[in-house]
Simulated scan of single mutants.
Amino acid sequence: MSIEISDYDRAWPGRARHAIDEVTALLPGRIVLAEHVGSTAVPGLPAKPVIDMMVATADLGDVLEAEEALRAIGYRRIETGMPERLFYRRPGYHLHVVTTASWDTRNERLLRDHLLGNAADRDEYGRLKRQLAAAGDDADAYTRGKTALIQRMVDAARAAKGLPSVDVWEE
């Protein structure tokens, strides 16, 4: 299966907002914070047409207890091995559930904000994504091929906030 990279679509933020509203309505009181993250959250950045959302909860167990509600609208939990995170997928959407305690230091949020404020890095990242996608259909190679650039940008974003560097691969 080939990797599809699309030009930025102005409909992506609205799709994200709708999906976030849907999830927070299903889990009243359990979701404290919610944002659109990932490449589809950055105007002008080409992306796989998958909406990534990150939501925060006081306790991951609160979301696990209500997981049936997420399943009812098509989300399936995927075991990723990422610490302190639940990951759900449905066609066209990824839902990352993290704790409020880790919200301010989440690399996905920091990278998004860095790309929003740095057009040169956004454009470099977009070019790399297109090159990697054109090189083949290996999703793992595509993801790993972006790692060095993402690490550099996340390191810069973390340093700007006085945060230590951490490996962008959460394993």
Rank of each mutant, 00 (worst) to 15 (best):
R15K: 14
R15D: 06
R15T: 09
R15P: 00
R17H: 12
R17Q: 15
R17T: 10
A19W: 10
A19V: 06
A19C: 15
I20C: 03
I20S: 08
V23E: 02
T24I: 12
T24D: 03
A25Q: 14
L27A: 05
P28E: 08
P28R: 12
G29E: 02
I31E: 03
A34Y: 03
A34L: 08
E35Q: 11
V37G: 05
V37D: 05
V37F: 06
G38Y: 01
T40L: 10
T40S: 10
A41F: 04
V42P: 02
P43G: 08
G44Y: 10
G44C: 00
G44N: 09
G44S: 09
L45C: 00
P46G: 06
A47R: 01
A47T: 11
K48E: 10
P49M: 11
I51L: 03
D52E: 11
D52K: 13
M53K: 07
M54I: 14
V55I: 14
V55K: 00
V55E: 04
A56K: 02
A56S: 09
G61W: 02
G61F: 04
G61L: 14
D62W: 08
D62I: 09
L64N: 02
L64E: 15
L64G: 05
L64A: 15
E65C: 11
E68N: 07
A69E: 13
A69F: 02
L70R: 05
L70P: 07
L70F: 03
A72C: 00
A72G: 01
I73K: 03
I73E: 05
G74P: 03
R76D: 12
R77N: 04
I78Q: 13
E79P: 03
E79K: 01
M82Y: 08
E84I: 08
L86E: 10
Y88C: 02
R89H: 13
R89M: 12
R89F: 12
R90Q: 05
P91R: 14
P91D: 12
P91I: 05
G92N: 04
H94E: 12
L95T: 08
H96Y: 13
V97R: 05
V97E: 07
V98C: 15
T99D: 03
T99R: 15
A101C: 05
S102W: 11
W103L: 02
T105W: 07
R109Y: 01
L110A: 07
L110R: 11
L111Q: 10
L111S: 04
R112C: 00
R112G: 04
R112L: 01
D113W: 00
L116Y: 10
G117Q: 13
N118G: 06
N118R: 11
N118F: 06
A120Y: 11
D121I: 07
D121N: 08
D123E: 15
E124S: 14
E124A: 15
E124I: 06
E124F: 01
Y125P: 07
Y125T: 04
R127N: 09
L128D: 01
L128Y: 00
